[in-house]
Simulated assay, not measured.
Amino acid sequence: MKSLEAFLDTILILLIFVYQPFCLSLVLDSITPNNTVKDGDVLLSGQKTFALGFFSPGKSRYRYVGIWYYKDPEKTAVWVANRDDPINETSGVLAIDSKGRLIIYAKDQNSPIWSANVSVPSEKSSSSFIAKLLDVGNLVLIKQDNSTVIWQSFDYPTNTYLPFMKLGLNRKSGLNRFISSWKSADDPGTGNCTYRIDSTGYPQMFAYKNRVPFWRAGSWTGQRWSGVPTMTNGFLDNTSYVNNQDEISVMYGISTDSNSVFSRFVIEESETVRQFTWQDQGHVLKLGMSQEECS
């Protein structure tokens, strides 16, 4: 009897070792050439504020790499890498390739589905780079020898404007940061609505649909956009507006010390710009921005 029990125990142990690799998901703190994010794995920011991984929005069967609030059970995406290039299976991998680029591939690493818009010096090996997710929701590709950020997701936002993210034009590089709507709740592909700074003449913040303005935040008064009086309601804080020969940009923070409260602006395909807060209890609408006549 004891020999039978020992035999069954041995079989059970073998089954655990055989099947465990097929259901194992990893929680990572960085991406390196030898440390990739596979579908099912999660990359966490240092304080576990944000998470990155593969997801399917809404009723979609396609897979995307996105960033969401780690504590949010709905995994509301605040950034999507391959928004216009979905994967139709679960074989996707986010990795640093042999050239030091951040890429997404499925079955063939030599044919990436998506890659970060960055040029890596040819003399640098892939081992010189590491990618991390910061606690502000920014995915950064870093040169390890001097900690220089050579690419960041904050430079290529999707439909969400987060605290400490800049919107606006870098006049030196020509990089223009703005947010654009999803096509639908099931499709994060680039939609028809955008929220951006018009740098011509006296700069103003506009929301556009098909390049036609439908909402105007107005010009900068020194404290807020003229068309958004609620910006001085005490919730927004540390708003920084820069307009010089190098750049025109705006960046905001939030006036709360709570680690359980987060803010985000979202441009929607329904011609709406909203600001939300997220708390442990769920999504709460903090500020719905009413439309202003565009002239």
Rank of each mutant, 00 (worst) to 15 (best):
P73M: 08
G53T: 03
P33E: 07
K48S: 14
V273Q: 02
K209Q: 13
L236C: 04
G218F: 08
W114A: 06
V118H: 10
P229V: 00
K75S: 14
F164D: 14
A106G: 14
S147V: 00
V149I: 15
G288K: 10
T194C: 09
Q152I: 07
K183Y: 01
N34Q: 12
S180C: 07
D97T: 03
F22Y: 14
S111K: 13
L43H: 10
N170G: 07
S115I: 00
I87W: 01
S147N: 13
G189H: 02
E292S: 13
S153T: 07
V212T: 11
I113W: 00
W68L: 02
N192T: 11
W278N: 12
K143L: 15
G218T: 05
K183M: 06
D84F: 04
Y208D: 09
S180D: 00
G137I: 02
L287Y: 15
R196H: 12
G218W: 09
M1H: 05
L52F: 08
E123V: 11
Q152F: 11
I87L: 15
G40S: 02
A95D: 13
R224G: 02
Y156K: 01
A77V: 06
V250I: 14
Q204C: 12
P112Q: 04
S153Y: 08
Y208W: 09
S184V: 07
P57K: 05
Q144T: 15
P213Q: 10
S3D: 12
A185M: 07
M251Y: 02
N159H: 14
T221Q: 04
D237P: 01
C23S: 14
N238Q: 12
N35R: 13
D39P: 04
S115W: 01
T36C: 08
C193N: 14
R264G: 07
L236R: 06
W68Q: 04
N210V: 02
G191Y: 11
S98M: 06
V78E: 04
V37E: 02
N88M: 03
V42S: 06
E293F: 01
L285F: 05
D97G: 05
V42K: 08
T272M: 09
V118Y: 08
